[in-house]
């Protein structure tokens, strides 16, 4: 028998059975308790699996990583800030850090800017949902598949040979010599090429959310402004943009996190070579080299970069709860 049939049975029958069994089991357990205690104990039984997973897979390991970042490669002794000094003094990590800053700035600006532009444009055509679907589609595929698609777009052949990559063939039509997009790091060209791939994937995300917010702006308000003689730019500047700002702030935080965590596209397309490395890929490489101390320090740097966003999220959540 193919052992995979056993796996398939576990996957389709065993896993759901265990989970539904658990929640029935809690009631059986509660029957043994006095009536008075039941409502006090029950919530914790319902929360227990979630809290256990959150603790074991997020809280405990995060604390562990912070401690580990102050210890040496093999976890034998305490080394103080040595791993962080290594991070701050190596060209490789500083290049990765610089690239991540480029990612945060340009991925966010592009996705929010172009996403907003598309949302406003498609609002004025009848095939809006089809157009949105097209822009949104790349978000459903893996960054690995997107990496393959765009590695082919950026394909480079030496001058004189037929350029089969779309980008080089296109600039060839304009009489420009072929460019090795992913190898050329002049002005971080290749990093911008990678950011472009991610922007292709994520612009649809920004567009959909901004578009939803755009629909909530009352048409009468815009019409009134136009009747009063405002041109399209003035309507956008004076009414639409200010009303979209809270949404743009939310989308931007998501994009910043996405940029900070960027990994798959870099791993698939350049492997971090040609000065395109980013912090997340650097950390993965240190895990595969077995330098867990340094890898932990890199992870903590990433965490530190994300903590302000975490605080913003919590603040925003509490403000929402207050008006709920």
């Amino acid at each position: 028998m193919d052992p995979r049939i056993g796996t398939a049975l576990i996957v389709l029958v065993g896993v759901p059975a265990v989970l539904i069994g658990y929640i029935y089991g809690t009631e059986l357990l509660l029957r043994t308790l006095p009536e008075r205690l039941k409502p006090k104990v029950r919530p914790w039984l319902w929360l227990l699996p979630a809290l256990a997973f959150l603790f074991v897979f997020l809280i405990y390991p995060t604390i562990g990583t912070i401690i580990r970042s102050f210890r040496d490669k093999l976890d034998e002794s305490f080394v103080g800030f040595a791993n962080y000094q290594q991070f701050a003094s190596s060209d490789v990590t500083l290049t990765a850090l610089r690239n991540n800053i480029l990612w945060v700035i340009f991925l966010t600006l592009f996705c929010v800017g172009v996403g907003m532009l598309i949302a406003i444009l498609v609002d004025r055509v009848r095939y809006e949902s089809f157009a949105k679907g097209v822009i949104f589609l790349p978000l459903a595929i893996s960054a690995v598949a997107a990496g393959v698609i765009w590695k082919f777009m950026f394909d480079y052949q030496p001058p004189g040979q037929p350029q089969t990559g779309t980008m080089n063939a296109f600039i060839g039509l304009l009489g420009v010599a072929p460019v090795p997009w992913l190898q050329n790091d002049t002005l971080a060209l290749n990093t911008f090429a990678l950011i472009g791939v991610m922007a292709w994937m994520w612009t649809g995300f920004a567009m959909v959310i901004i578009s939803a917010s755009l629909k909530s702006i009352s048409a009468e308000l815009l019409e009134a402004a136009r009747v009063d003689g405002a041109n399209e730019w003035q309507v956008f500047r004076g009414i639409v943009f200010p009303l979209l700002l809270p949404t743009i702030a939310v989308v931007s935080t998501t994009m910043i996190i996405t940029a900070l965590k960027a990994f798959d596209v870099v791993y698939t397309m350049t492997g971090g070579n040609f000065n395109t490395d980013v912090v997340a890929n650097l950390m993965y490489k240190q895990i595969s080299f077995g330098d867990f101390g340094f890898a932990s320090a890199i992870a903590v740097v990433l965490l530190l970069a994300i903590i302000p966003i975490m605080l913003v999220n919590v603040r925003r959540f509490q403000a929402q709860e207050a008006i709920r």
Binding site: T62, R68, K261, A299
Partner: peptide, 18 residues
């Protein structure tokens, strides 16, 4: 609120202990 805070924890900080 703690769950909301955990929303953005980077996976990288969890790999080694797990």
């Amino acid at each position: 609120v703690a769950v909301v805070g955990l929303l953005v924890v980077p996976l990288q900080t969890t790999f080694i202990p797990i």
